[in-house]
Design a protein around this nucleic acid. Structure first.
Lengths: 84, 84, 84, 84
DNA sequence: CGCTTAATATAGCCAC
DNA sequence: GTGGCTATATTAAGCG
């Protein structure tokens, strides 16, 4: 348990496990970020404008989250009206 | 090809492929971020101090990049001194 | 006040003051950047290696911020241990 | 001279002077950056939208540099035509 | 002038 | 829910 950290190393071992899990996940995340960069490099090589494609992705993301929000509101209203 | 973008939709199709690849990768990335959050929640539940664990992870990351940096400096100096 | 911005120009005047203050400051900043460039040009003219001097400045900056960081970590741990 | 750097410390002293000049200038620059941040904080406190004001400043900057460019071109043309 | 690194701006997260 | 802080994304600068 965490309070043992200064006593017998038991919590130390547990902490180490957590830290390493986090580090593995962050590495994976970094790998994916690198993949995304590669895709941008590729589309640039194909003659597309990186800045604009970035903008498009951003707009689509916003639109998606707005749509979700709309649906959430709809659901809320329907619940309020006993329609669901 | 990208220049066809306003003509016949060929580039439009290619662009769509790229955008979708990016979106898939970003989703994966988001999933991993969520996993990391879960790990922090878990270790918090086990009695560890989230802020400090975050700091530990950050320090280990810095140490790693510092080691790389040292090597880069060494190389730079060796180049400057014509030793390489 | 800012909400008047579409009404009577009062906020417009205030905004203008802010924007001009920012622009003056950015000009000053640009001037200093130019001064720094001049110093690098000068030391280059004196036979020093610009790239390496840049690195030295960067390292000194990092060292300073690392020292601060160490203190921050110490404080964090002391807080966590209820020593403060 | 810079080549003495490994010999007698003369160049070392000169280098130190340069580094310190750069550091002083970078501090000044940082001070101004902080001032700019303060102005943004202030205008935010007055009810203005920071992001939008930033955009305005950026646009004005672009316009200014475009105007300068136009003038440079004009001058060039006038010179080419022997009008100046 | 394009490509890589540094500075800045934005967004997300956590604590209060 | 607001404000500070960290992390990410964007933009600018420097270098070859």
């Amino acid at each position: 348990m965490a309070q043992d950290i200064t006593n017998d190393g038991v919590a130390g071992e547990e902490l180490k496990q957590f830290v390493e899990r986090i580090e593995r996940l962050e590495e994976e995340k970094k790998g994916i970020s690198d993949d995304i960069k590669e895709v941008f490099a590729e589309l640039k090589g194909r003659g597309f404008d990186v800045k604009i494609v970035r903008k498009i992705v951003q707009i689509r993301r916003q639109d998606a989250s707005e749509r979700q929000e709309q649906e959430a509101i709809l659901e809320l209203y329907m619940q309020a009206l006993g329609m669901q």
